[in-house]
Simulated assay, not measured.
Amino acid sequence: MQPLLDAIAAMPLPTDACRIFHGRGGRFPGCEQWTLDAYPPVWVLTSFLPSGDETEAQLVTIGAALAQRWEALAPGQPLNWVFQCRNEALRTQGRTETRLMAGSVPDPHVVTEQGARFKVHVLRGQNHGLFLDMGEGRRWVRDYAAAHSADRYGLKVLNLFAYTCAFSVVALQAGARNVVNVDMSHGAMAIGQQNHQLNGITTGASFLAHDIFSSWGKITRSGPYGLVIVDPPSYQKGSFVATKDYARLMRRLPDLLAPGGHALLCLNAPELGVDFLQSQMQELAPELQFVERVANPAVFSDVDEDRALKVLVYAMPELPLPNAADPAPSAPAAP
Rank of each mutant, 00 (worst) to 15 (best):
V299S: 01
D53E: 14
L277K: 14
A146N: 13
G217P: 14
A116S: 13
I8K: 00
T46Y: 04
G30W: 01
G25Q: 01
Q236P: 11
K310R: 11
L4W: 02
L253A: 06
A9C: 02
A74G: 13
K119R: 09
G204M: 04
E54T: 13
Q197C: 12
A171H: 08
R139H: 15
D16H: 06
V157D: 15
S185I: 03
E283C: 12
V294T: 04
D245P: 00
N195F: 12
I8C: 02
A171D: 11
A9W: 02
G187M: 07
V82Q: 01
L256Y: 02
S301V: 13
L59Q: 02
D275G: 08
P286C: 07
M184P: 12
A263W: 06
V230Y: 09
R293L: 09
G238C: 07
Q77S: 10
V141K: 14
Y153I: 10
L265R: 02
L90W: 03
L172D: 11
I62F: 00
I219G: 14
E113V: 14
P78V: 04
N199I: 03
H196W: 02
A188G: 05
I62P: 01
L198A: 07
P270L: 07
I62D: 02
P106T: 04
L256M: 06
Q197N: 12
N181K: 05
Q93R: 12
I201R: 06
A147P: 14
G154T: 12
N296P: 04
Y235I: 13
A176W: 03
R24N: 13
H128T: 08
W34Q: 00
L100G: 13
F48V: 11
L4F: 03
N87I: 05
R95S: 07
M281F: 04
A188I: 00
P259A: 13
F207G: 11
Q197Y: 14
P108S: 06
P286A: 08
F131C: 05
H210A: 14
W70Y: 08
M134I: 04
